[in-house]
Amino acid sequence: MMINVTINGDTHSLKEALPLLELLSKFEIEHDKVAIEHNREIVPKTTFGDVTVGDGDNLEIVHFIGGG
């Protein structure tokens, strides 16, 4: 059964729940350059490996861009 995860406001279908680090590499995101909110809770970088992303979860993945 597919699961749905919202990433940066868009819904993505995944085959199954998976660890955050695996999800990042699946989307080719360099984990050391981003910060992540999982269901509105900050995920400390050191625990990227411990968090599992499941059905209905909401992720915000952000990085630094140019700004004033």
Partner: peptide
């Protein structure tokens, strides 16, 4: 710098 969503 600004903080914005990564372009997935």
């Amino acid at each position: 710098v600004a903080v914005r969503r990564v372009n997935i």
